[in-house]
């Protein structure tokens, strides 16, 4: 069976910057696919190409069999898009915005209310408020409602949770899962690693290239080598000490600890590290093997990409 959304070898260049380099991926009808990457990795460019706003220099894309190049008008009238920046009419009220986006698609709020009910109940008390006066989380929920209200075939959400508080983000993702379960595939981008775990599959994008694309579980499973954590109050000193030791692949501070990526966690090496730390650190510390998190995997892939260049 053909995938619902597909992109093949998409490239896009702005002047001397290669924004996208040979990007290919597929999205099934029942999936949330996340694009994870830092600012400037090419996520927004990819979204604008897939939503027909930009023409790629090379490559092809299809949504439900419609070409993003030739059938752009058809695609435009049946997908939902939420751009990275808040893009609703700030001088119109919540209701007016929602009605506008329903009506220009020849639909109405009543007709598809079931689509947005879960999200909109929270917004309803603010129906008369101007969209510009909403809080960050509310704005994003309204934008999601507006992208959903015409019952799109697919949703493209470019960094929908950027600048939104943690509670709202969790709620927002609960909504996305509901939407997926109602039969609308979602392509979403985010700079937050924790959100990657809620996607069905994740594409890690760096400097315009997809470095890896798989389920979050598989990506974590594919972590190379072993991960050690040092828990200490003197993180920067610890990092500097370990950095000088031979055979260490990468060392970085991670929250309240220091993570070390090693080819193997041989007891001998661990002892060597512990000894050096004992000498150098004045305070107590703990050294133990850790299960890699998604972010550790992302950083490892980024490091590999940097080495390959």
């Amino acid at each position: 069976m053909q995938p619902f959304i597909s992109a093949t070898n998409i490239s896009k260049r702005y002047g001397t910057t290669q924004a996208l380099d040979n990007v290919s991926f597929e999205v099934g009808k029942d999936e949330i696919v996340g694009f994870i990457g830092a600012d400037g990795a090419g996520k927004s460019t990819l979204f604008e190409i897939m939503t027909t706003l930009l023409i790629p220099d090379a490559g092809e894309g299809y949504i439900n069999g419609m070409s993003i190049d030739r059938d752009y008008q058809k695609i435009r009238s049946c997908i939902g898009f939420m751009p990275g920046r808040f893009s609703l009419y700030q001088d119109l009220s919540v209701e007016e915005n929602l009605r506008f986006y329903a009506n220009i698609f020849g639909s109405s709020i009543q007709e598809n209310y079931a689509m947005i009910e879960g999200i909109y109940t929270l917004l309803k008390p603010f129906g008369k408020r101007k969209a510009g006066a909403l809080s960050g989380g509310m704005k994003q929920k309204l934008a999601l409602c507006c992208a959903l209200i015409h019952k799109p075939l697919a949703l493209f959400l470019d960094e929908p949770t950027t600048g939104v508080d943690a509670v709202s983000r969790t709620e927002f993702w609960d909504n996305l899962i509901q939407i997926r379960d109602s039969g609308i595939p979602i392509v979403v981008s985010t700079p937050y690693m924790d959100e990657a775990l809620r996607c069905d599959r994740v594409a890690m994008i760096h400097e315009g290239k997809i470095m890896d694309m798989d389920t979050p579980k598989e990506i974590i499973k594919a972590y190379k080598g072993c991960l050690l954590g040092i828990f200490t109050g003197e993180r920067y000193l610890a990092k500097a000490i370990v950095y000088r030791l031979a055979g260490i692949e990468s060392v970085y501070t991670f929250g309240d600890s220091v993570h070390i990526n090693l080819p193997t966690c041989h007891p001998q090496i661990m002892k060597q590290i512990a000894d050096s730390l004992k000498q150098g650190l004045s305070a107590e510390f703990q050294l133990r093997e850790l299960n890699p998190s998604f972010e550790d995997c992302f950083l490892q892939l980024m490091g590999q990409a940097a080495n390959e260049r």
Partner: peptide
């Protein structure tokens, strides 16, 4: 400038 053009273009208008 407000970015609403992007959303407006992705519509049947």
């Amino acid at each position: 400038e407000t970015g609403t053009m992007k959303v407006l273009l992705i519509s049947p208008l």
